[in-house]
Amino acid sequence: MIMRQRTGLIALAAVTAIVLSWVFVRPVASATDPSVAKYIVGDEKSGYVYLDAQTRAMEDDDISNPGFLWVDKGKTLWNTVDGSAGKSCAACHGAAESSMKGLAATYPKIDPHSGKLIDIEQRINQERTQRMGAAPFKWESQELLALTAYVKLQSRGLPVNVATGGPAHQYWLAGKQYYETRRGQLNMSCAQCHVEYAGQHLRADTLSQGQINGFPAYRLKWQTIGSVQRRFRSCNVKIRAQPLPYGSPEYVALELYIASRGQGLPIETPAVRK
């Protein structure tokens, strides 16, 4: 009798597990799904592929995508005169639609003057301090996010195209090393989640490949647009590691390595993420 009850319970548990997995496991959109096909290049999958259909729809419509509120602000800043040189971005570069087209897809990039690797935020601030005679924008300020989003939007749809050879190679290696090094109290590396376990579940969510082609991105959790370095910091905190300061060379090198992992993926800025 007890034996039969136990068998019954096991059968019930098995059925429940099957039903629950059917209800709760949301399969990642497949490569043959035409709505995500352009966000998959070879083995590389943009974070877009891992989103629910509702969040994808939110990103696809330029009005429901809240990132465009910052893009508008960035467009205003592009045309605003600032600094001792009395210039705006537009004074030298004209219309961003043509002059900035494809540019952000090549960042982080070696700065020819200093020979160091810089990302797009640092490049914008370099232009401000050296060409415009203006104060640099603070990292993660509304202004820097807005202008970065506006500049990077001009590359939307174009493939990520970063240089990893030549003088950039040592930075790429440093980024790769950071990516693969275990750190924090949880003793985890970026690669463990985003390479080894990508596509599997972490609690209720699906681990993505951690591609950065959509940054600065509007994160629903943040309820604002944020830079890729803010995302790095929040990942570091989650594995209980000490986050690095904004703009630190390790993070810029990490940006280059991760961008190279997504070489060829279309720029999606401003993306919407969970």
């Binding site: 009005i63 429901s64 465009f68 509120l69 508008d72």
Partner: peptide
């Protein structure tokens, strides 16, 4: 700042969608 999208032209009797977002 806010954004507003409506069709700029419509035929009489058409049902049009108004979409808006505010920061």
């Amino acid at each position: 700042a806010s954004r507003l999208l409506v069709p700029s032209t419509a035929k009489k009797g058409d049902v049009i969608e108004v979409k808006t977002i505010i920061m």
